[in-house]
Design a protein around this nucleic acid. Structure first.
Lengths: 215, 215
DNA sequence: GCATGTTTTGAATCTAGATTAAACTCAGTA
DNA sequence: TACTGAGTTTAATCTAGATTCAAAACATGC
């Protein structure tokens, strides 16, 4: 069940100093556990006791690293969103020079899907809980969330402008429908029945045909 | 925010007797409130106090109608699922005689979407909470959930068999992707920005092209 | 081995909610 | 009018968690 941990790739200036100290690893273990539990049980259902169990510490130890349950949750959401964006950005940077707008959208679909399914509990935590966070927390995420949405919007708008998306589709609605196909995957996919590669290939074919103008 | 109430259409034999008594209406008011709160806050986040407030009663009054919080939630889920299935079945029955497999899928897409967006907090409660219910409750829903899924599977399998779905798509995965596009709508759509008709039309065009073999 | 700072823990505390108990309202009616 | 029972409320009770705290453990440099 538990997938890999969040953003070692995202080490920022002030992380660097203690990336390897045992204590820093415990902190990560707690954060990972929180992402896992949050993803499975939802915002209100996440018990610090469960997080502690997964992280293999006693519940009060969490307070040595985070000042409250809320702060812990906020950090999971923040890291999750930042990771998603970084992962997507990297995938897009590596796109072939000559990729057109539609192809770039398909690259985004693949990256988002892989990140969501094989890499990160943080991503599924973000995807599943966006809706039911209390306002206080949501506001603070809004910023990051907008940035992530902006990347996608940009992809859709430029593809639409280039005539690479069927003109009977509203670009905004089309974007949301595509995000639905990929985000919802977290709800039904599980290792075993269908391979990730197969899901990715199907989703890309699905989206390509959905969007592409009939030749 | 609050949408219409659940399943007056589904009156079964033992409902009929007290459909109009004031007490029966209070019960419905509580159930509707529960659907609304459940949809907004999620399983673990639903407070009986909130439900009571929306239903305009004191919290303990709920116990006159439901023996526990769990039972209340189970009933919301059950009604939600049953309604969705009934609504979908009706829409399919009214499909033109000569509708082919793909057209029937599009009818299902439209019905599901309209039910979800304009009619029922129960539907969104079901859609959003399927994932994070505790096993005890989930098991009891499983049955109903399978029935709903079965209707869709049937649609996809027969369309696939008739060659009305691109052969590079796995029917099961395609079904899940389509359900993602429609279910996810509950997360982003809200009255105002785009009309329901527009969403439905876009979703249908999107799905038609996604699935239809290239001519 | 001892002193000092860091991390973890076990045993309280405190609070929000679910649930229960007992009492109240009031329509119908003998 | 007084009684009855359905429906509802207010005032307990009880419990699961979040949070706090003081005392262990542990590590580290001396």
């Amino acid at each position: 069940m538990a997938k890999k941990s969040g953003s070692p790739m995202l080490a920022t200036a002030d992380d660097e100093k203690n990336l390897d100290k045992k204590s820093a690893r415990t902190r990560v273990r707690i954060l990972d556990a929180a992402a896992q539990v949050l993803s499975a049980k939802g915002y209100a259902g996440m018990r610090l006791g469960d997080v502690a169990e997964v992280a293999e510490v006693q519940a009060p130890a969490i307070y040595y690293y985070f000042s409250s349950r809320e702060e812990l949750i906020e950090e999971v959401m923040w890291v999750g969103l930042a990771d998603m964006r970084a992962y997507l950005a990297t995938a897009l940077e590596q796109a072939p020079e000559d990729a057109d707008g539609l192809e770039r959208i398909l690259i985004a679909v693949g990256a988002h899907l892989r990140h969501e399914l094989e890499i990160s509990d943080y991503a599924t935590a973000v995807i599943r809980n966006g809706g039911q966070l209390p306002d206080k927390i949501r506001e603070r995420q809004q910023q990051e969330e907008k940035k992530y949405g902006a990347v996608w919007r940009e992809l859709f708008q430029s593809a639409a402008k280039a005539g690479e998306i069927r003109s009977d589709l509203d670009p905004y609605v089309a974007q949301m429908l595509v995000m639905g196909t990929v985000n919802w995957t977290a709800e039904w996919w599980q290792p075993g029945r269908v391979s990730i590669d197969r899901v990715v290939a199907n989703a890309q074919a699905f989206v390509r045909n959905a969007l592409a103008p009939t030749a």
